Computed example of a mutant assay.
Amino acid sequence: METSIIKIGNSKGLRLSKTILEKYGIKDKVELILEKGHIILKPIASPRENWEKEFKKMNENGDDKLLMSDVFGDENHEEWK
Rank of each mutant, 00 (worst) to 15 (best):
K56H: 07
D74H: 13
M68D: 11
V71P: 14
F55M: 06
E22H: 09
R48T: 04
K36C: 02
L67I: 13
K29R: 11
K57L: 07
E22N: 13
L21H: 04
K53P: 00
K27G: 02
V71S: 14
I44A: 02
F72C: 08
K23R: 14
K42S: 08
L41N: 05
P47F: 01
K42D: 02
N76G: 04
Y24V: 07
N76I: 09
K65C: 04
L32R: 11
I40V: 14
K65T: 12
K27V: 03
L34K: 14
K29P: 00
K56P: 00
K29Q: 06
E22Y: 07
G62Q: 07
L67G: 10
M58W: 11
S69W: 08
D63F: 07
E75T: 12
D63L: 14
N61V: 00
K29S: 09
P43L: 04
N50C: 00
I33L: 12
H77L: 15
K29F: 04
K53W: 02
V71C: 12
M68I: 12
A45N: 07
I44R: 04
D28Y: 03
M58V: 01
I33D: 04
M58T: 04
S69Y: 12
L41C: 05
K57F: 03
D28S: 14
R48N: 03
I44S: 00
N59M: 06
N61E: 15
E79P: 06
F72V: 08
N61S: 10
I33R: 11
G37Y: 04
D63A: 10
D70I: 10
E22M: 06
I39A: 11
G37I: 01
R48W: 03
A45L: 07
I39N: 09
W80K: 13
H38C: 14
R48L: 05
E54Y: 05
E35C: 11
N61D: 14
H77W: 13
K53Y: 01
K27M: 03
E75N: 09
E75Q: 13
G73E: 11
D28W: 00
K65F: 13
G25N: 02
K36F: 04
E54Q: 10
K42H: 05
F55P: 00
D70G: 06
E54H: 05
L32K: 15
E54W: 01
K23P: 03
N59K: 15
E60L: 13
G73P: 03
P47H: 02
G73H: 08
E49Y: 03
K23W: 02
I33T: 09
R48Y: 05
L66M: 12
V30F: 01
A45S: 09
E79W: 12
D74Y: 10
M58A: 13
M68Y: 10
V30S: 00
I26R: 03
E75R: 13
L67R: 12
D74S: 12
W80M: 12
K57Q: 08
K56R: 10
K27T: 06
K42N: 08
K27L: 04
E31C: 08
E78I: 10
E60N: 13
E75A: 14
L41Y: 03
W51G: 00
A45I: 07
Y24L: 15
G73W: 07
D64N: 14
I26M: 05
E54K: 07
I39P: 06
D28V: 02
E75C: 11
G37S: 02
R48F: 05
E75K: 15
M58K: 08
I26F: 04
E31R: 14
S69T: 15
V30L: 01
E52L: 05
I33H: 08
D74Q: 11
I39E: 08
I44D: 00
